[in-house]
Design a protein around this nucleic acid. Structure first.
Lengths: 133, 133
DNA sequence: GCTTGACCTTGTAGTTACTACAAGGTGCAG
DNA sequence: CTGCACCTTGTAGTAACTACAAGGTCAAGC
């Protein structure tokens, strides 16, 4: 699979794929005889993973860390645990916030359906509770 | 409340707060007699909301849109519904991905606790299923 | 009263994570 | 043999900050 097709398959521009390679997020793929990058299913998975993770608000550094962990889980347990636990805490926090946001958005959409105007409290809901950060 | 304190209260640098004001995310606050920005609880809420939303991967434009909706929900139902529904779809997608990620991270942390080395499938899990984008 | 630190402004420049060109070249399919 | 996708290097633009510097005001503590 060449870069263009890989891009189409993952919703990533060719230029972004090359950028990820330069930045070390994507290992340099094998090349065809004519020097074209040749992507297989593994690289496509990685690309999709990067895309999703970035959409979820993780930095390239965090994505790198997660992938490194997945790549060789035979690292000292301490290291792996430290990374995984930290990411897990972040994931939990995001889940909490997103659930609150969903609830408010659902309310808005629902009351809209019934022709009434909603009291939209998205701001208050994400502003409140779980202590500053 | 002056800019520094507002920053400390929300985990935002003064410079970022002024930047948000310039970009129209934050309405210009009242000023003290000595021309200092004077923030009240409402502005703090807004700041926290912006911070959280950005961490969840929403763009400044999306944050703006959400706040505009919250600010006057008396807009035509059509408009509000269109925005809210779109955001809701995004929130749901993020929730799905985060839940998958959480599951994998939990597995890793758990097996670490038991001294075993985990098979970490974070990549596969976020790469798979819900169709490309 | 004076120093110190927080604030004010404008402006420039650096960072991250892309995105989009241009220039100059190779490979391949119709 | 034309045209498009790819290759490279390099520059520049965008979004969302972050960090200075310069030059100035304000207020709290000694």
């Amino acid at each position: 699979m060449r870069i263009g097709e890989a891009g189409r398959a993952t919703g990533t521009k060719s230029e972004t794929i090359r950028y990820y390679e330069r930045e070390g997020l994507l290992p340099p793929p094998p090349r065809t005889s004519s020097n074209y990058r040749d992507y297989g299913p593994d690289e496509i998975s990685r690309l999709r993973f990067i895309k999703r993770s970035r959409k979820l608000g993780f930095s390239m550094a965090q994505v790198k860390e997660l992938m490194a962990m997945a790549d060789d889980p035979d690292q000292p347990c301490e290291t792996v645990d430290k990374i995984a636990s930290a990411q897990l805490r972040e994931v939990e926090a995001k889940l909490t916030d997103l659930r609150a946001l969903r609830k408010e958005l659902t309310k808005v959409v629902e009351s809209c359906k019934h022709g009434t105007v909603a009291e939209c409290r998205v701001i208050e809901v994400l502003a409140g509770s779980s202590a500053g950060r």
